[in-house]
Design a protein around this nucleic acid. Structure first.
Lengths: 207, 207
DNA sequence: TGTACATCAGTGAACGCGCGTTCACTGATGTAC
DNA sequence: TGTACATCAGTGAACGCGCGTTCACTGATGTAC
């Protein structure tokens, strides 16, 4: 295989080790989305798709788990941005609804990331309290607290209310992702609207 | 290994092929619960734990997927029984609440089964419309319809309302199962009560 | 400016593994005559 | 009652696979003198 020698990757100059690192993350993300599950993505396939040998991966990531976690965490930063821009000041109820819709859009737009990060338990994740997922939840608690402060809610426990909201939206997203064969009575966005109607009616004081 | 010949399993008489079949299901279930995921359970481990060689499995099940699916489906029959006994006639609102609690109890009591059946997408499942999961959903729709018939609900779309309820309870269950490291503000049953308060307040007409 | 040297990103080859599944078979159980 | 035979549950051995990871290495890039 003299081809090998010819195709051999140009080694990155000193300062630019991050270039390959990012290429690895990009390739891993692409494979994750194509293959639909983190277990279907192999280190070997990632290496091949970058044009590098498998051991190179280990110069940049401790192991496969860390690599895939970082792939998702990176995309979840976008998720948090989407949540933040949904969370407009002013009407706190409208903000909560907008956040719910943004959540659904993100989850259904990136179902594989969502699955890996929010529907898969791994030992490592349990240790990370600073994950993007936690950040997103904090936003939700803030928005709920604003509703409480405006005197709009039945309860004054922002955390529990946020858990209820999160449960509903997460539940809908994960069911839509998992049970694709289920005879859903309406398209996702409509189901989300109906769900949010229920949740908000339940959280807020009757008009 | 003359030991092998000594330990060799007594072959089942003609009519009793189901005996081994059930032993296989039992062993697979035990392993599933111990190991916590369907991928961690191997056909070889199941065979060994029954005291049989791996190929024997294939006399009783088409492949691994079918075996594990049946393990869960079998347990989900219990789930449906629990849902049915929760669904007492009389007060339809109380019935819905009781079904929600029964759902949570089952999911948290059998998290591995729940994960395999309700949190994992597999090609095969999509084809099965007669699964126990679908049956459980139908119960929920029935209970919701009774609330509607009693003139208690804001909406008259039982299916959409049931989807909203299911989303909430499933969401809470799956979050509790997946995010075990999350700083939950209360024990599961209390979170469920709070969630059901929200959901029912949201579904029902204000008093 | 030129040469010897250190650095370290990426390589090639292999490790050791467990997996799901197939195949031709064995031999106890039951049946026919 | 006794013998030849069919059945078929379970076996033993192997197939072929892809996996994550480790290891000693190579050789271009950059640095010191």
């Amino acid at each position: 295989m003299t081809d090998r020698a010819v195709t051999r990757r140009q080694r990155a100059p000193r300062g630019e080790g991050d270039k390959l690192r990012n290429q690895i993350l990009d390739a891993a993300e692409k494979l994750l989305v194509e293959l639909g599950s983190d277990e279907a993505v192999s280190v070997r396939a990632i290496a091949e798709s970058v044009g590098v040998t498998p051991p190179s991966i280990y110069r940049h990531f401790e192991d496969k788990d860390e690599l895939l976690y970082e792939v998702c965490e990176r995309r979840f930063a976008d998720f948090n941005e989407a949540m933040e821009s949904a969370d407009v000041p002013g009407d706190p109820v409208a903000a909560m609804r907008a956040m719910g819709v943004a959540y659904l859009r993100f989850a259904l737009g990136h179902p594989e990331h969502y699955r890996v990060l929010m529907m898969t338990a791994r030992e490592r994740d349990i240790k990370r309290e600073d994950s993007q997922g936690k950040l997103a939840f904090d936003h939700l608690v803030d928005a709920t607290q604003r509703c409480i402060d405006a005197g709009l809610c039945r309860s004054d426990d922002a955390v529990r209310m946020a858990v209820a909201l999160w449960s509903g939206v997460h539940g809908l997203c994960s069911l839509l992702i998992t049970a694709r064969g289920f005879p859903w009575p309406a398209p996702p966005e409509q189901l989300a609207e109906a769900l949010l109607d229920v949740q908000l009616n339940g959280l807020l004081k009757p008009a």
